[in-house]
């Protein structure tokens, strides 16, 4: 097990290096650099050259990449070209905000999604099942900016006004205010993500419920409640963990639209900003952080598999 974990960690390091190289290459395929965007339509050739020299953009690409890798390995994330602030500060703040939002959304998805999926599996083919499956499908089919805007107009408009429209406040300025700002974006994401978990739970559970060991349990007289909670769900939920791990990666870096609608300062908007401003050091670190979340969440899901299912052994 320990050797397996070490091997996985080594391959994760390799994946991250590859991701950084690909992102670095991709941003340089795009025309222009940070200097052209800082100077905008007032750039003179002289000013462009000065800024490029100052930011080290006039060096060969391989040298730029190597020096970036060298400083990241020593723990120096560099300085954002457009904001002139330490990348670690900027990314740290956005990462924390994204983590709060992701955890809020994932918690609701699990708390609502698993029972709904279970209910649908137990009532398979009946109207309740149909209602649950249809409703979650509608949720995933409507684009997230529509869902977000509808929630915003209804619940944050002047007539109801239960929640603030947008933005983020620090935890230090009060838990209530902080939580109120999370409600609408988290609700939007829940509606979008619910279908994954409900469908996965439903089909997993439906499969398991026809397995021989469930019939055995039923024959030995176990209550329906005990069968579902103790015997069936534990096995049925394994694939759901993988779905949640993938969702976590998406929530940490891919929710640009929801972050824009609710003016939420998270990782998604930061990545777009970095691309638009050709802010290479900032983009590189964003990509690394998001990729890390993806691979580590999957790694954690695999470890959880082994823990939940004694038949699975990694070696």
């Amino acid at each position: 097990m320990a050797r397996y974990a070490l091997r996985r960690l080594a391959s994760i390091a390799l994946i991250l290096l590859l991701v950084s190289a690909i992102v670095f290459a991709a941003i340089h395929v795009l025309p222009g650099n940070a200097a052209t965007l800082i100077l905008g339509e007032y750039a003179t050739p002289e000013a462009l050259r000065t800024l490029e020299r100052e930011m080290g953009l006039d060096r060969p690409l391989l040298v730029q990449y190597a020096s970036w890798v060298a400083s990241v390995v020593t723990g120096d994330w560099g300085v954002s070209l457009a904001m002139k602030q330490p990348v670690a500060t900027v990314v740290g703040y956005r990462l924390r905000n994204s983590a709060f939002l992701a955890l809020a959304a994932l918690t609701v998805v699990v708390v609502v999604g698993v029972p709904l999926g279970t209910l649908a599996a137990l009532r398979r083919g009946r109207p309740l099942d149909l209602a649950i499956v249809t409703a979650t499908y509608v949720g995933i089919s409507i684009p997230e900016f529509v869902t977000g805007l509808v929630l915003l107009l209804v619940l944050a408009g002047p007539s109801v006004g239960w929640f603030p429209t947008s933005g983020y406040v620090e935890l230090a300025s009060g838990v209530t205010a902080w939580a109120r700002h999370l409600v609408l974006p988290a609700m939007t994401l829940t509606i979008v993500l619910l279908a994954h978990v409900v469908r996965q739970t439903r089909s997993g559970l439906a499969d398991v419920l026809t397995a021989p060991y469930i019939r055995t349990a039923r024959l030995k007289g176990a209550s329906a409640r005990r069968i579902v909670l103790r015997h069936a769900l534990r096995n049925a939920l394994l694939p759901t963990i993988t779905v949640l791990a993938l969702d976590l990666g998406y929530l940490m870096g891919g929710i640009v639209v929801v972050e824009e609608v609710f003016a939420y300062p998270g990782m998604g908007r930061l990545i777009i900003y970095a691309v638009q401003n050709r802010d290479v050091p900032l983009l590189q670190m964003c990509a690394l952080v998001v990729a890390s979340v993806y691979v580590l969440a999957n790694f954690a899901a695999d470890l959880a598999y082994a823990w939940l299912d004694p038949r699975i052994r990694y070696s």
Binding site: L149, L152, A156, G157, P158, P164, T165, S166, E260, A263
Partner: peptide
Amino acid sequence: LRVFPDPATELTAFKSKE
């Protein structure tokens, strides 16, 4: 001074006197 990337949100925030 706050940045609202989405004009619809900006208008709602204005209507709600945020």
